[in-house]
Structure formats: C-alpha cells, structure tokens
C-alpha cells in the first residue's frame, strides 16, 4: 500500500467514509443509467403492467425518426454556438478585468454573482427581458412590427436561449480564466513589453498560450454542459417551441418520457445521448488534450 493509505489506521475506514457518497452516486446515477439502457431494449408499459423485449427495434425507430435527427441537429448547433460564446465572452471579460483598468476590481467580484442564480430563475428573467412587448426589443418592435417575437419565430426563440445560456455561463468560466491569467508571472509581460510587444500582441502571444489548460477545461465542460444543462432554460423560456424549434435532445427526452409516457423511446434516446456525450469528451481529450502543455 502507498503512503497515503497509512493515514487511516483501519483498512475499512476509508471505504466507510466513502460509502455515503458512493451510495448516492449509485442510486442517482448508475441505477438510472443502467435502467435506461435496459429499457431501451424493451417496450415498457408506463405503470409496469408488462414489458416486451424488442431487441434493437427502439434504436431502429429512433434512428430513422426525422424528429430525433432534427433535435440532434439543434443540439449540435446549440453546442457549437452557445458553448463557444460561453467561453469567448467570459474570456474577453477576464482579459479586461485582469488589466489594471478602472472598475476592474469590483468587476472581478460582481461578475461572479450570477453563479448563485438557478437555471430556471435565469429562464424566467430572460423570458421577460426578451418579451416582444415589454422587453429590450420592444422599441425595435414598435418601429418594425413583427421583427422580434420568440413566441412565433423559431430563430428568435433559439437566439434567446443562446443568450440566456451564455449569460449563465459567465461566472464560472470567468473565474477559471481569470485565475489562469492571474497566475501568469508579471515578469513575462514585462519581458514582452521590453521587447516591444503591444497589448494585443501580449494577449495573443503570451496570455492565451499560457492559459490553454484553463481554456481547454472550460471548453470541455461547456461542450458537455451545454447539452444537458440547457433543460431548465428551455423549460422556462420556450417550452421547446414554437413549432419544436427549441426542442433540443435533452428536452425531447423529457417530453417523450414524462409527458408522453413513452418510457422506451425516452430511454433509447437517453442511451444515445449519453454515448454521444462520452464520445464527445473522449474526442476532445484525444485530439486537443494531448496538445496542451500543462508545464509552465
């Protein structure tokens, strides 16, 4: 045994201390995951009156369903637009707050506050902000009637969703990126400045390369997060509409399973989504992760 384990005199104590957490993880993650995979091979009656093994039929059905691919396509678009913006916007803010410009100290504090707001609350607020009659866009709408209406126009609804997601992603990514920037030794800038590098040059040649580990972390988390955490926003802002334009995969699963009682279809899509997210994270680590230099 290694030296760490000698911290505990009793060999069962570490296991005992871990047990409550493991129990929760098993109960709320592994059991449902196993059940979702299991049900995806069955046609399951909602009240459990009976179930029939159908092999891969559920997968066949889901994979040949244009609605599934529509929702998957929207999920990918959302992932690319919303998560990129959710990293780029905090990055700009962090670079600005890192510099000794006016208000950068209070900004470092204030920008973290939205972290304390639940997704559903953000949704309610954004639904109000983007309301076509009383929100931010209302003046534009009175000039050009019908220009902005997320209740009718699917693109408008999607934009609202992206904006809300980016906003809610600011605090966490901001903290990570700012911490990365703060940890760069000032001597590096001083040396660069001495060599005649201007502020922009210093950002692209010194700061960004040196915070690659943080950027990578935020991108990985954002990409996987954006797929699942958007649920609360969709549920409160658009309800998946209008015309299914904001029904991302995670919301479709909820609607099919919990409002339509199609447990098998929802389980099958859950299984597919989970594999997709795992593959995505694996790809990121495989293709990007190994190029990142963690040494300073």
């Amino acid at each position: 045994m290694s030296s760490e384990s000698s911290l505990f005199s009793h060999r069962w104590l570490p296991a005992l201390l871990l047990a409550p957490l493991m129990l929760l993880i098993v109960l709320f993650f592994y059991v449902p995951v196993f059940q979702a995979f299991y049900w995806s091979f069955f046609l399951e009656q909602p009240f459990g009156g009976g179930s029939e093994f159908v092999g891969l039929q559920n997968f066949q059905r889901v994979l040949s369903d244009p609605e599934f691919w529509g929702a998957t396509g929207r999920t990918v678009i959302f992932m690319l637009t919303a998560s990129s913006l959710a990293v780029i916007v905090p990055l700009m803010l962090a670079v600005a707050a890192d510099r000794k410009i006016g208000m950068s100290y209070p900004a470092r504090n204030i920008l973290v506050w939205p972290k304390g707001i639940a997704g559903a609350s953000i949704g309610v607020v954004f639904a109000f902000i983007f309301n076509p009659f009383v929100g931010l866009m209302a003046p534009l709408n009175s000039l050009f009637p019908g220009l902005w209406n997320p209740g009718i126009d699917g693109t408008d609804a999607f934009v609202t969703l992206v904006a809300a997601h980016v906003w809610s992603g600011i605090p966490f990514n901001f903290v990570i990126l700012l911490a990365g920037l703060r940890s760069i030794p000032p001597t590096m800038y001083q040396a660069a400045a001495m060599d005649g590098a201007g502020p922009w040059r210093r950002i692209f040649d010194v700061q960004l390369p040196l915070i690659m580990p943080q950027l990578f972390l935020t991108f990985v988390l954002e990409f996987t997060e954006s797929i699942t955490s958007v649920f609360a926003l969709i549920d409160t802002i658009t309800g998946g509409g209008p015309g299914g334009s904001t029904t991302l995969l995670v919301y479709k699963i909820y609607v099919d399973g919990f409002r339509g009682f199609d447990l098998s279809g929802a389980s099958t899509q859950t299984a597919i989504l989970m594999v997709f997210v795992l593959l995505l994270a694996a790809c990121q680590f495989f293709f990007l992760g190994r190029r990142i230099n963690y040494e300073r």
Binding site: G240, G241, P242, G243, G244, T247, V255, D256, R259, G260, F261, D262
Partner: peptide, 14 residues
Amino acid sequence: FYVQFREVFMEETQ
C-alpha cells in the same frame, strides 16, 4: 399516447 399526439399537433401547426 394521446398526450404525445397533442404535443405533435401543437408543434406542426405552430
């Protein structure tokens, strides 16, 4: 699965 049908109807007609 009529509850789900209502969702489909709403989505397509919207």
